[in-house]
């Protein structure tokens, strides 16, 4: 326990990096994912194909390989980004297709009668999507999006294997330095992760119940 308290500043520093990765790549993945989802439902076929190829490619590549590319292959190609930014790019790329899929399944989840009703009232494409479908899809999309963010929180740990000092690398470093307190240190790191993931999980479950549309 002493080892944990003595190294508290180091833990906080690492936790800060984890939160930074979560916030920046979370926001960027939400933006890119929304664009991809919009492409996926757009009437232009080539945009559809591009979006689905992007989604399938990234979803079937292990995160380790994506981060490896950003950390080791990109410098070979001439990039001079620090490892933190490489990890940020990798996590953003990896998370964006999951965001897109969550959004798409939310839109698909709106009952088809809603769209038919809107169309039969004479609303156009823009009107029926923005006034009828998106407001309903939005509620269904929030819990899955939170789950994507929870997964991202856990995935930031992989960046620890690529020279970013966040919670996982802190666990490794401090466990090596304090051989007699390995369990305490690892449990402390787990607690830091749980502080983020469990409240998010509770929030997601709560919203799912609250926002459920009665049909």
């Amino acid at each position: 326990m002493n080892a944990v308290i003595e190294n508290l500043p180091r833990f906080i520093e690492a936790f800060g990096m984890t939160l930074w990765l979560l916030a920046t790549s979370g926001v960027c993945a939400l933006i890119i994912g929304t664009v991809i989802a919009a492409m996926r439902i757009s009437p232009v076929p080539s945009l559809n194909v591009f979006a689905s190829v992007y989604t399938e490619l990234l979803r079937n590549t292990p995160l380790t390989l994506v981060l490896f590319f950003c950390a080791f292959v990109l410098p070979q190609l001439g990039s001079r980004l620090p490892y933190e930014w490489a990890a940020f790019i990798g996590l953003t790329l990896y998370t964006s297709p999951f965001v897109a899929e969550a959004l798409r399944s939310g839109i698909n989840g709106v009952a088809v009668g809603q769209a038919e009703a809107a169309r039969s009232l004479g609303l156009g494409f823009m009107q029926s999507t923005t006034l009828i479908i998106f407001p309903q899809a939005f509620r269904m999309v929030i819990p899955p999006l939170i789950n994507v963010l929870i997964a991202l929180t856990k995935n930031t740990s992989v960046a620890g294997g690529f020279f970013v000092f966040e919670l996982f690398s802190a666990a490794k470093e401090l466990a090596n330095a304090n051989g007699n307190a390995v369990i305490a240190i690892l449990l402390a790191v787990a607690a830091f992760y749980l502080v983020v993931t469990i409240p998010l999980g509770i929030l997601s479950a709560h919203l799912e119940k609250k926002l459920a549309v009665q049909r």
């Binding site: 929870i150 856990k154 995935n155 930031t156 740990s157 992989v158 620890g160 294997g161 919670l167 996982f168 666990a171 490794k172 466990a175 690892l186 790191v189 787990a190 992760y193 749980l194 993931t197 469990i198 999980g201």
Partner: peptide, 12 residues
């Protein structure tokens, strides 16, 4: 507990 923890940390 298991669901909220990164797999990598569990491996370590």
């Amino acid at each position: 507990f298991f669901r909220g923890m990164p797999v990598l940390l569990m491996m370590l």
